[in-house]
Nucleic acid binder design. Structure first.
Length: 418
RNA sequence: GUGGGUGUAGCUCAGCUGGUUAGAGCGCUAGGUUGUGGCCCUGGAGGCCGAGAGUUCGAAUCUCUUCACCCACCCCA
């Protein structure tokens, strides 16, 4: 049987040539998180299936048809994590993190898995940079989280983006609204598109998000969620808007913005960017005050977001933003024979021990060819170890930027390059 | 799951309505005399033309099937 050399559908290889950029972005994220007092949480790649089926909402596509679920030999049903929040909450509960400090602030960089049809900015395995802040009910925390996301993408050089916010209420006021919405929609039911007719039954909120012309028309005059918020939710939403103003963050209110998972309450937000095609949400997040309680722990309010790393990279690419990467080796060692290779080996070793990145060429090729490679690698210095150098013990070091050469005794090489 | 598009060297692509050993640019590699990069010149390697079947004297080119990728719906990061 022939081996299929292609990466599975919806997955990709990040090649050595490209990985420095990704590392830079990840490092940047870690730095910003540190500035905000967040520490990294790493959870397993797979979890017990019930963790997701019980909390993401039984009607969501992610749960009903997109999970990578499998049985172990011990007949336990496990699932590759399709999102990062439920596992984070699980870990929070398992380790009683609420006893360590009143507010738990964690971030993660994780691979997530969803069996979807791949398209621009959508993969079956994708990377998410995420934040979870557990224990604060304040809308100021929501604003802080949003500012973290904004500061992060701006630090990468992204200036063209749009922050959309909304409040989707809580279990007390949302049902009232949904009731009003379905009541309103009833008489238009037959005019709705097929998917909205399904949504009408299963997840009415999502109808507001429909892109069909006729549906948009119908919902133009539909009841507005904002008008149905109870006092608590309303106060919270106003506090959020105010805090964002204090932080000087521009936003637009999008009353049709709905989050995908059932556990969201109050704040929902999204950062959309150009250059991504239809999958234009780089970051999506919100508040989920009831999730932990649903997991059987004492009620604890939380906020967070997830950011698609792949989408972020696509955005950077399409905006023509150059990521500063430094992979330039300091030094390249050119060798000419067995003895010179051995000498090169030990010199390279001592340079590397002193944190001087260096390349040793033992290809046995001509000096010209080695110089060519050295030049292509854009190194600062090239050390040449030829017959002459071995005999005299004085090596030739060429400054590749100025083309000038110097003679340096072997035992002073390290000093010279430090 | 539903539509539409594409599939030729490492990369970006040419190959007209089927006709001999399949091309370019870039990249890679080796040279341009005796131990030296970036420019220039010359040579070389590398493709069962996504895969399978069919039509034909003959298929990269036509037909069917399949797979993969891309784009959109859906969903979402």
């Amino acid at each position: 049987m022939d081996i299929n050399y292609k990466a599975p559908r919806g997955t990709y290889d990040l090649l050595p040539e490209d990985s420095p950029k990704w590392q830079y972005v990840e490092e940047q994220f870690r730095k910003i998180c540190k500035n905000y007092g967040f520490k990294e949480l790493r959870t397993p790649t797979f979890e017990h299936t019930e963790l997701f089926t019980r909390n993401l909402g039984t009607t969501t596509d992610v749960v009903t048809k997109e999970m990578y679920t499998f049985n172990t030999k011990g007949n336990t049903s496990l699932t590759l994590k399709p999102e990062g929040t439920a596992p984070a909450m699980r870990a929070f509960i398992e380790h009683n993190l609420s006893n360590i400090q009143p507010i738990t602030k964690m971030y993660y960089i994780a691979k997530l898995f969803r069996y979807e049809r791949p398209q621009a900015g959508r993969y079956r395995e994708h990377t998410q940079l995420g934040i979870e802040c557990i224990g604060s009910h304040s809308a100021k925390t929501d604003a802080e989280i949003i500012s973290l996301a904004i500061n992060f993408i701006e630090s990468l050089g992204i200036k063209e983006y749009n922050l959309k916010i909304n409040s989707i209420g809580c279990p007390k006021c949302r049902p009232v609204f949904i009731n009003a919405l379905t009541e309103y929609t009833k008489e238009y039911y037959n005019d709705l598109c097929d998917t909205c007719q399904k949504r009408f039954e299963q997840n009415p909120l999502r109808m507001l998000d429909c892109k069909e012309e006729k549906c948009i028309e119908i919902f133009k005059n539909a009841p507005n969620l904002i008008d149905y918020l109870d006092d608590d939710c309303n106060y919270h939403f106003n506090e959020l808007k105010n805090s964002l103003k204090v932080l000087g963050i521009k936003f637009s209110i999008d009353n049709n913005l709905v989050r995908g998972f059932d556990y969201y309450t109050k704040t929902a937000f999204e950062i959309v960017s150009t250059g991504l095609g239809s999958q234009n949400a780089v970051c999506g997040g919100g508040r989920y005050d009831n999730l932990i309680e649903e997991l059987g722990f004492k009620s604890t309010p939380s906020v967070g977001f997830g950011m698609g790393l792949e989408r972020l990279m696509i955005t950077l690419e399409s905006l023509g933003i150059n990521i500063p990467v430094d992979t330039r080796p300091t030094c390249y060692i050119v060798t000419t024979n067995e003895k010179s290779e051995e000498l090169g080996l030990s010199i390279a070793n001592s340079l590397r021990k002193n944190n001087i990145p260096c390349e040793l060429d033992v290809s046995g090729r001509s000096i010209k060819a080695q110089m060519k490679t050295s030049g292509k690698m854009n190194v600062k210095f090239t050390v040449i170890i030829g017959q002459e150098e071995i005999q005299s013990g004085i090596l030739t070091i060429k400054n590749m930027d100025t083309s000038s050469q110097e003679k340096i005794p072997i035992d002073q090489i390290l000093e010279y390059l430090l």
